[in-house]
Structures are given as C-alpha cells and as structure tokens.
Amino acid sequence: MKNVDKTPDEYNQMINQFRPGKPKIVNFLQAYLVGGLICGFGQALIEILQLLGMPADEASSLATIILIFLGALLTGLGIYDEIGQFGGAGSAVPITGFANAIVSPAMEFKSEGWILGTGAKMYIVAGPVLTYGMVTAFLIGLIKTIFKF
C-alpha cells in the first residue's frame, strides 16, 4: 500500500486546485470604494472647515484629528473591524486605520493591566509605522543636509 507522501510543491499544486482563491478583483474594488470614500470625506471636512474661516494648514490638521477620533470611536463601538473585513486595505491605509491599529490592542490588552497591557501593547502595529517613518525621515534629512540637493 502506498503512503500519504508529497513534496511541498506537489501539495501546493493540489491546494491551488481545491482551495477557493481570494476574490482579488472584488477586494480591489471594495478597497477602492472604502478608501476613496474615507479620503473624499476627509477632503470635504477640510473644505467645510475652510469655509468656516480656518486657514488651510489648520483645517487639514483638524480634519486629520477628527478622522483619527472617528476611527478610534468606531473601533471602540466594534464597527471598524466589520468595515475592515469589507474594505481590506481600503480601511487599513487611511489614518482611521492607523487609529484602529492603536485602539484595538489598547482595549484588548486592558485585561493584562494598564501599564504592561494597554500602555505597552497599543503600539504593536503603530510602533513599527512610527519607527520606520521617523528613521527614514531622519536619514533623508541627513542625506539632504550633507549633499544639499
């Protein structure tokens, strides 16, 4: 009698034959829709704030803060992860998704305490983003300062 035996490549072929793939086109369109709507909403916020007489700079800062607040609140209400399942990158990439990435572990690790739970774990996704952003920004500044381009 033969044994159950396959190389990873052979098995992979078999999996591709029997496993439903990701609906890539649908995912693409949904991500476009959700991401586009969040950005469009952000732009509308900026324009409304400017109409109210706020300078352009401050309006975009305040709009960002409002979006972060909304992302955080929707996460707290348990709605943002539902949007995430529909929108994929469309809800992860906007700044609201960054807020979601901070709030979700912050809430969840409360059970391990305020300091070592919430305080430490709230940066599991946001931490890398800030670290690499700051290091890259610093290096670019350094190169620009040295080579003056």
Partner: peptide, 9 residues
C-alpha cells in the same frame, strides 16, 4: 491580531 483590528481574512 487583536479582535477589533480591522484585518481582512
């Protein structure tokens, strides 16, 4: 990931 994190499965 945390339960409320919006990743797509």
């Amino acid at each position: 990931m945390p339960i409320e994190y919006g990743s797509q499965y």
